Structures are given as structure tokens and as C-alpha cells.
Amino acid sequence: MHSQRFERRVTVTRHAQERMKQRGISEVDLIELLEGGDLRYKDEIRLWVAKHFEGRSDNLICAAVILEKHLVVKTVMHHFDWGG
């Protein structure tokens, strides 16, 4: 998987894959999230990407990612709130 937005190969951790399965988030959804979601940076390499998906009733879907040599997706959440 590759992200044009971040110009990096995407690596999805086992934990993130398990959460995607539990939460009904497909690989296609993940790519749409990464390519078009809103960004919030924690620091220079850690950030959240969140997006509302039509037809889902669980608020925002969010991926916690790390920008390194690859874009590493650490986890995928639903019922996400930016908090504040």
C-alpha cells in the first residue's frame, strides 16, 4: 500500500489490522482516510488522521500514524473525538 499524500509506503501494524477488522474498516476505507482525512500533529512525526464516512454512525474514523521511512499506521479508532 502506498500513500500519495504522504509520499511513503504504508505499513499497517498487526494491532491496527486487528482493530480494522473489529471495527469494520476496510483497506479501501483506510486509504481514503489517509489520503483525505483531517490532520492533527502531536509532534514532527506523530499525528492523527480523521474523517467522517457517510453511512457510518460511529462519528469520525481515525488512524494514529508515525511519519518515518514508511507511514506506520499504529491503530485505527472509531467514535473518535478531537477533544475540544
Score class of each variant (00 low, 15 high):
1 M>L: 14
1 M>E: 13
1 M>V: 14
1 M>Y: 04
3 S>R: 01
4 Q>R: 07
6 F>H: 08
7 E>I: 09
9 R>L: 13
9 R>S: 12
10 V>I: 14
12 V>F: 03
13 T>M: 06
14 R>L: 10
15 H>A: 03
16 A>S: 04
18 E>I: 00
18 E>A: 04
19 R>S: 07
19 R>A: 06
19 R>Y: 00
20 M>P: 00
20 M>I: 05
21 K>P: 00
21 K>W: 02
22 Q>R: 14
22 Q>H: 02
23 R>T: 06
23 R>S: 08
24 G>V: 06
24 G>H: 07
24 G>A: 09
27 E>L: 12
28 V>I: 00
29 D>K: 00
31 I>F: 00
33 L>S: 03
33 L>T: 02
33 L>N: 03
34 L>F: 02
36 G>C: 12
37 G>P: 09
37 G>K: 06
37 G>F: 09
37 G>S: 09
38 D>R: 03
39 L>C: 10
39 L>N: 08
40 R>C: 08
43 D>H: 07
44 E>G: 14
46 R>C: 12
46 R>G: 10
48 W>P: 07
48 W>E: 07
49 V>F: 07
49 V>Y: 11
49 V>T: 07
52 H>M: 13
52 H>I: 14
53 F>V: 05
53 F>G: 03
53 F>H: 09
56 R>K: 12
57 S>D: 15
57 S>C: 14
57 S>P: 14
59 N>D: 14
61 I>E: 01
61 I>P: 01
63 A>C: 04
64 A>I: 07
66 I>F: 13
67 L>R: 12
67 L>W: 09
69 K>I: 13
69 K>E: 15
69 K>F: 11
69 K>M: 11
71 L>A: 01
74 K>C: 10
75 T>A: 06
75 T>R: 07
77 M>I: 11
77 M>K: 12
77 M>R: 12
80 F>R: 04
82 W>F: 12
83 G>V: 03
83 G>P: 01
